[in-house]
Design a protein around this nucleic acid. Structure first.
Length: 394
RNA sequence: GGCGACGUAGCCAAGUGGUAAGGCACGGCUCUGCAAAAGCUGCACCAGCGGUUCGAGUCCGCUCGUCGCCUCCA
């Protein structure tokens, strides 16, 4: 199978390190509802996992939830809730929403707050090795000390350390700057602010920074080098760039991740769907009108790497496609006895080409129509078997 | 500003050097008592200019336009 690696900006033959494929995907910060963009990201990895299993791989899939973070604390205050109360509620909602879309849960759903001890250990090790420093109860990653910092950022156009530094300096208006040696430095551990939740550490009470939890959890649950690390394209920089720096200088092993996969953003009203703009299509609202299959089809009709906008018409078309597969089911019945090698091979070829689900679905739609026209039960059975790999339930 | 991506019919979109898929919308036809549904059918100077080539939507350069990233973000 060929997958596009963001780091090298090229399609590469995917070969797992050992007999279990290790996948880590950055999850949500649980302070708001699940929208179509989240669904696109997590459906992509659901589909990948199903396909890898179909082709005979064992898969271990870890997804994190950053349940302690500035946004969670802020939103909880706005709502007059405890931060963990809000987090628990939103985690439940997120899992409900993705369950409703028939997105399989990861093997490990890991919380940042369960990771505190190991995060501290990681931060401490980076201090000892000179990649991080302590100031006023905070620990910062020392970007200047790390000559390799930014390779992933470079892949999306931030060409080198110097330019990142120059840009950051231009806008040096961050309150943290006084405690940091360099504006690009990022927090591994931050000292407790009044009224905020905190954990004990060698540097006093505090809580983890944003990027460090994923390094820690990925290495803890999957090992120091993994096959695939994924997430939304907006995480490429700084989040994943920082993860590489932390992880590789902690473990002394590179690459931390063999294939970086980034999912394109979903748009609404011509702009990126985002919580701050409020232009959201919520999964739970869509589910009132459309089936899980229809929503999966809308998403899988787009290749995971490219941004797209969802129009109401696309949902109707997807609903028709879902209906088409149901008609095939009526023709075939519950047992899938026949097969069609030609369709099977073309489907596999599409999926092997960087998980090209739009092409795969196109093949299935054409074949479904043909099977209904000619009452070809072998072809129909093959269609249903393959829609099953895509996680459809017709 | 730096860097990156993209620009194919009204809309979505395939296409990775060899006569431009498909879908939606729209028009015509068939079938219908009418309509719907269904079926058939029609519908593209590939943003512009230049270059490489026997041949370019596809490769190279420039121009124009749209968008993204640059410590909120799936």
């Amino acid at each position: 199978m060929k997958l596009f690696n963001t780091l090298t900006q090229s399609l590469q033959e995917f070969v797992p390190l050992d007999d279990t494929v290790k996948i880590y995907v950055c999850g949500v910060t649980p302070y708001d509802t699940t929208h179509l963009g989240h669904a696109f990201t997590y459906l992509t990895f659901d589909t990948l996992m199903r396909y890898l299993e179909y082709t005979g791989h064992k898969v271990k899939y870890v997804q994190n939830v950053t349940d302690i973070d500035d946004d969670v604390i802020r939103k909880a205050r706005e709502l007059g809730m405890q931060w963990d109360e809000l987090g628990n509620r939103e985690i439940e909602r997120f899992l409900d929403d993705t369950d409703s879309l028939n997105i399989r849960r990861p093997d490990v759903y890991a919380r940042a707050t369960d990771e505190i001890e190991r995060i501290i250990e990681l931060a401490q090790a980076l201090v000892e090795r000179g990649y991080a420093y302590v100031n006023e109860g905070c620990v910062f990653y020392d970007v200047k000390h790390d000559t390799e910092f930014g390779a992933l950022a470079q892949s999306i156009g931030l060409n080198d350390y110097q330019s990142m530094l120059a840009i950051a300096n231009e806008r040096g208006n961050f309150p943290e700057d006084k405690r940091k040696r360099d504006p690009l430095d990022f927090v591994l551990w931050q000292a407790q602010a009044p009224g905020e939740p905190a954990w004990e550490s060698p540097w006093g009470a505090g809580r983890p920074g944003w990027h460090v939890e994923c390094s820690s959890m990925s290495m803890h649950y999957l090992g120091q080098q993994i096959d695939i690390h994924g997430g939304g394209a907006d995480l490429t920089f700084p989040h994943h760039t920082c993860e590489i720096a932390q992880s590789e200088h902690y473990s002394g092993k590179a690459p931390f991740v063999r294939t970086w996969m980034h999912v394109g953003m979903v748009y609404q009203d011509g702009e990126k769907m985002s919580k701050s703009l409020g232009n959201l299509t919520l999964v739970r609202n869509l589910l009132k009108e459309y089936s899980a299959d229809a929503i999966r089809i809308v998403l899988q009709n787009h290749h995971y790497r490219y941004p797209w906008e969802c129009f109401p018409e696309d949902l109707k078309i997807a609903a028709d496609t879902a209906q088409l597969f149901k008609q095939v089911r009526e023709l075939i019945g519950p047992r899938l006895d026949g097969e069609n090698t030609m369709l099977h091979n073309r489907f596999i070829a599409a999926m092997e080409n960087d998980l090209n689900t739009p092409e795969a679905l196109q093949l299935l739609k054409q074949s479904a129509r043909e099977a209904l026209d000619t009452r070809d039960k072998n072809l129909g059975a093959e269609v249903l078997r393959l829609t099953g790999i895509l996680g459809l339930t017709a």
